[in-house]
Simulated scan of single mutants.
Amino acid sequence: APGLAGLVLGEYRRLASEPAPAAGADEPGAPRLTDRETEVLRLVAKGLSYKQIAERLVISHRTVQNHVQNTLGKLQLHNRVELVRYAIERGLDDA
């Protein structure tokens, strides 16, 4: 959605001017996402809706929501905007 994209880009620009956090996704103690959670995260970062993700992965809309909620919990994030920012910072939107 255009509104979500604007929020994400604004937040990304703000964060790009700040120093990067020390902890990376591959460091010990970092949350471990399943392959499916990572796959869903990549598609969320690309701007796909839950319905589009469900169709692409041949899973239900509710399963996509569950993966997103599990990922938010593991990463201690609060909403989809923060999740997209996390994915962009780690280059998951390019893969």
Score class of each variant (00 low, 15 high):
residue 74 K to I: 12
residue 38 T to V: 08
residue 69 Q to C: 14
residue 72 L to A: 05
residue 41 L to G: 05
residue 49 S to R: 06
residue 68 V to I: 08
residue 91 G to W: 00
residue 26 D to R: 12
residue 78 H to K: 13
residue 27 E to V: 11
residue 67 H to V: 00
residue 59 I to G: 13
residue 4 L to E: 05
residue 23 A to F: 11
residue 65 Q to V: 07
residue 14 R to W: 02
residue 83 L to W: 01
residue 10 G to T: 06
residue 3 G to S: 05
residue 88 I to C: 07
residue 77 L to K: 02
residue 20 A to Y: 09
residue 38 T to P: 07
residue 43 L to R: 07
residue 62 R to F: 07
residue 59 I to T: 01
residue 88 I to Y: 03
residue 40 V to T: 06
residue 81 V to C: 05
residue 42 R to C: 07
residue 94 D to V: 14
residue 72 L to Q: 10
residue 47 G to R: 00
residue 76 Q to I: 00
residue 10 G to P: 15
residue 79 N to F: 01
residue 76 Q to L: 12
residue 3 G to D: 10
residue 59 I to C: 12
residue 95 A to Q: 15
residue 30 A to N: 07
residue 13 R to G: 02
residue 18 E to T: 06
residue 74 K to Q: 10
residue 50 Y to E: 09
residue 18 E to G: 15
residue 26 D to C: 15
residue 12 Y to N: 05
residue 76 Q to G: 09
residue 33 L to G: 13
residue 36 R to S: 15
residue 28 P to D: 04
residue 62 R to C: 08
residue 80 R to C: 11
residue 39 E to D: 14
residue 8 V to P: 04
residue 44 V to T: 07
residue 1 A to N: 14
residue 32 R to V: 15
residue 57 L to T: 03
residue 13 R to A: 09
residue 56 R to G: 04
residue 36 R to H: 10
residue 47 G to M: 03
residue 35 D to S: 13
residue 12 Y to R: 10
residue 79 N to C: 03
residue 24 G to H: 12
residue 70 N to T: 10
residue 47 G to S: 08
residue 6 G to L: 07
residue 82 E to Y: 06
residue 88 I to D: 00
residue 70 N to C: 15
residue 82 E to R: 05
residue 36 R to Y: 09
residue 21 P to Q: 12
residue 83 L to P: 03
residue 90 R to K: 09
residue 15 L to Y: 05
residue 55 E to R: 00
residue 93 D to N: 12
residue 7 L to E: 12
residue 81 V to D: 04
residue 7 L to I: 00
residue 52 Q to H: 09
residue 56 R to E: 01
residue 5 A to K: 11
residue 74 K to N: 12
residue 49 S to Y: 00
residue 82 E to I: 12
residue 84 V to I: 14
residue 39 E to L: 06
residue 36 R to T: 02
residue 76 Q to V: 08
residue 13 R to V: 01
residue 7 L to G: 13
residue 52 Q to R: 11
residue 15 L to W: 04
residue 6 G to S: 11
residue 87 A to C: 06
residue 91 G to D: 02
residue 59 I to P: 15
residue 41 L to R: 09
residue 66 N to R: 07
residue 6 G to C: 08
residue 43 L to S: 04
residue 31 P to D: 02
residue 52 Q to P: 15
residue 23 A to H: 13
residue 81 V to L: 05
residue 14 R to L: 00
residue 31 P to I: 05
residue 20 A to W: 13
residue 40 V to I: 02
residue 8 V to T: 05
residue 82 E to T: 13
residue 59 I to L: 03
residue 3 G to F: 05
residue 54 A to T: 00
residue 20 A to L: 11
residue 77 L to W: 08
residue 38 T to A: 06
residue 39 E to T: 08
residue 28 P to M: 02
residue 78 H to Q: 11
residue 5 A to E: 11
residue 40 V to N: 06
residue 51 K to W: 01
residue 75 L to H: 04
residue 70 N to V: 07
residue 15 L to P: 15
residue 17 S to F: 01
residue 94 D to Y: 07
residue 69 Q to F: 03
residue 63 T to Y: 11
residue 24 G to F: 10
residue 2 P to Q: 05
residue 45 A to M: 07
residue 44 V to S: 01
residue 38 T to F: 01
residue 58 V to G: 10
residue 91 G to C: 04
residue 70 N to I: 04
residue 92 L to I: 03
residue 33 L to A: 14
